[in-house]
């Protein structure tokens, strides 16, 4: 039973990681706290849901569509909103993204009601894997594997491609990057887009086993804030390990103390870790 709990904690942890990777990118590169991050996740889930309901497309088939759509929406968000507030003092960017979050969440409620929606049949639904007494649901396994693939892809993109290095350079020092001929404007828009793609993938994968409603993404964004800070702002590897750690502590906290305390445990872990590493697990 304990092994079972540990496994499911780790699996959901990888999804948390992917959501946090998207958040940490924007936070690290442009120092913007995106409160609408979770709502982009919700958009991805609804996209998958409607493609399933109207066109009978399997969530895994419509995943690229949802990802592309959220990429585009994030890109536009930067061009239309974030661009105007990025140089503003203090918490103005936060004001804008919070407004955006309210807007998306309530628009979803207006258009599609607050009802919980499910995708009952899909390629992965109702399949299970049994390994040494541990039962792993196929949707969770696929979600975890998909999240790992996307996280690794983003990691390698940043590390080994020219554009990725330009993003890193902009993150370290925007003005110097500009002097070196980096089009920082384009880099910012692209970073926002990639961040959106991360939650696009996560949303499509989650839609196979998680209820879809206007506030689906809220929990994920709250946890992502904690994971990002736990891993260190702008640190992709930190977000990956942080996500798994949070998934694990949530599962174990729920197992030992009861489900009502599982998030209290998560926040407590954050406070404890930061006492020893005030700039996150991988902070410098």
């Amino acid at each position: 039973m304990l092994l079972q709990v540990i496994f499911s904690g780790i699996l959901v942890g990888f999804v948390y990681s992917l959501v946090a990777v998207g958040l940490t990118l924007i936070w690290g590169v442009m120092d913007v706290i995106n409160f609408a991050h979770g709502d982009f996740l919700t958009i991805s889930m609804y996209t998958v849901f409607w493609l399933y309901t109207l066109l009978k497309l399997d969530p895994l088939v419509s995943l690229p569509v949802a990802t592309g759509l959220v990429f585009l929406l994030s890109f536009l968000t930067y061009k239309l909103i974030i661009k105007r507030v990025i140089n503003a003092p203090g918490l103005t960017a936060l004001l804008a993204t919070f407004g955006l979050s309210l807007f998306i969440r309530n628009l979803a409620q207006y258009l599609w009601t607050p009802n919980y929606r499910f995708i009952p049949t899909s390629l992965v639904a109702d399949k299970k894997l049994e390994l040494a007494g541990v039962i792993i649901g196929m949707p969770q396994l696929v979600a975890a594997v998909g999240s790992i693939i996307m996280t690794v892809a983003v990691f390698y993109f940043l590390k080994y491609t020219k554009t990725g290095r330009a993003i890193q350079a902009t993150s370290l020092d925007r003005d110097t990057a500009k002097l070196m001929g980096v089009n920082t404007e384009k880099i910012y828009a692209l970073t926002f887009g990639i961040s959106g793609a991360c939650v696009g993938v996560a949303g499509a994968l989650l839609a196979t086993f998680f209820p879809i409603y206007p506030e689906s993404g809220a929990l994920y964004s709250l946890l992502a804030f904690v994971i990002v800070a736990l891993g260190g702002f702008g640190n992709i590897a930190g977000a990956l390990y942080g996500g798994v750690l949070i998934g694990l502590s949530e599962a174990l906290g729920g197992y030992f103390l009861g489900t009502q305390f599982k998030y209290a445990v998560v926040f407590l872990i954050y406070l404890l870790v930061l006492q020893f590493k005030p700039k996150g697990l991988f902070g410098w």
């Binding site: 909103i81 407004g99 309210l102 309530n106």
Partner: peptide, 17 residues
Amino acid sequence: LIIFGALIILVACFEPN
């Protein structure tokens, strides 16, 4: 809340200070 959210965005965009 849709209108409220939209207004907050507009204020933040056009009066960032």
